[in-house]
Design a protein around this nucleic acid. Structure first.
Length: 322
DNA sequence: TTCCGACAGTGGGGTCGCAAT
DNA sequence: ATTGCGACCCCACTATCGGAA
């Protein structure tokens, strides 16, 4: 079978990060890629048949995704450092972060082996940082992409993909990803270099986020009584269906104002249908409120349990109906 | 002087796996 | 057998500080 080859020394890289910002107008100078909803990884293949996988923060992740040895098998003696995202496909065939979470959290080898079949993962490769020991980060995006696409990574039925990018057409990318229910896109400047460890403006992420008007049925306070987050829900069957706690986006001043309003509405009984389980940190105190306040909340998606993922407070609505 | 960029800290949802109960 | 909690993953945002523009 495959002979062991001499590994090539590969430098350790930190992944380049994207900035959240409005999409650029000079589309011709940009490419768009799908923003995969999974786990960011750098894959080091030194050319000796092995791979090393590291997470965004540099944590060792090789054992968690044993199927990624496919990278080494595809490359043979070639050495490379790849940047990509590990995703798991849900029942509908599109990437499911929930499905991936179970995979990436597994640590015991026996559990991982069992999960390889029930929850297979795919590596979506989008950048090439090093080839045969030669650093490519100083090459522009288009050149790195060209070198990447020359590699025999994308094999039929394999766990490794090199998805195509839209060149000079961000609008199509936005429409396509929107239509397919994909998280969003990352726009990348065609002439940009790879900036390891930096959150660069040469990469701009654009997400399709949801927005909803919720009722406030309570809040979580810290030890000193200050507002940590508000408990949101939607009216249903005479009560509130719990949607989650929202804290991000509430400024200090706004939080103080909000707390005054909520105190006037405080009640002893929960307005939520059933008791929301696992409310916040243990050192938070729970307060219930008559759900008279309406607010706008933005979020990424609902989890399998029907709870906000990445909720952000947008503000109180002027008028509360009813 | 003003405007970033980096960093630390805060808020959220979630999983596993080990230690304490 | 349960429960608590620390590690890690994902995410958005706030506040601050120092240096570049």
């Amino acid at each position: 079978m495959s002979r062991a080859h001499t590994p090539i020394a590969l430098p350790v890289y930190a992944p380049m990060l994207a900035t959240t910002a409005p999409l650029p107008r000079d589309e011709a100078h940009w490419a768009a890629e799908v923003k995969w909803d999974g786990m960011r990884v750098l894959v080091y293949a030194p050319g000796d048949g092995t791979v090393h996988v590291r997470s965004r923060t540099g944590a060792e992740a090789t054992e968690r995704f044993p199927e990624l040895v496919a990278v080494a098998e595809a490359l043979g003696e070639q050495a490379a450092v790849l940047d990509g995202e590990v995703v798991a496909l849900g029942l509908n065939g599109s990437p499911s972060f929930g499905a991936l979470q179970e995979r990436m959290s597994l640590r015991r080898p026996s559990q991982i082996q069992a999960a390889r079949h029930s929850t297979p993962v795919t590596l979506m490769v989008f950048d090439l940082l090093n080839l045969d020991g030669h650093d490519l980060t100083r090459l522009p995006y288009t050149a790195r992409r060209a070198r990447l696409l020359e590699l025999p990574l994308d094999q039929e039925h394999g766990p490794v993909r090199t998805p195509p990018a839209w060149l000079g057409d961000l609008r199509s990318a936005v429409e396509w990803t929107e239509a397919y229910g994909i998280e969003g896109i990352v726009a990348k400047r065609l002439d940009s270099l790879y900036e390891p460890g930096r959150r660069s403006r040469a990469w701009i992420k654009h997400k399709h986020r949801q927005s909803v008007d919720v009722r406030l049925g309570g809040w979580l306070a810290d030890e000193r009584g200050r507002l940590r987050s508000v408990l949101a829900g939607l009216p249903e069957h005479g009560g509130l269906r719990y949607l989650g706690a929202v804290g991000s986006g509430i400024g200090v001043h706004e939080g103080e104002d909000l707390l005054v309003l909520l105190h006037h509405l405080e009640t002893d009984v929960s307005p939520f249908l059933g008791t929301p389980a696992d409310l916040g940190r243990p050192d938070s105190t729970v307060h219930w409120a008559t759900p008279a306040l309406t607010a706008e909340v933005e979020y990424q998606e609902l989890t399998a349990g029907g709870i906000f993922r990445a909720p952000v407070w947008k503000g109180l609505r002027e008028v509360t109906p009813q």
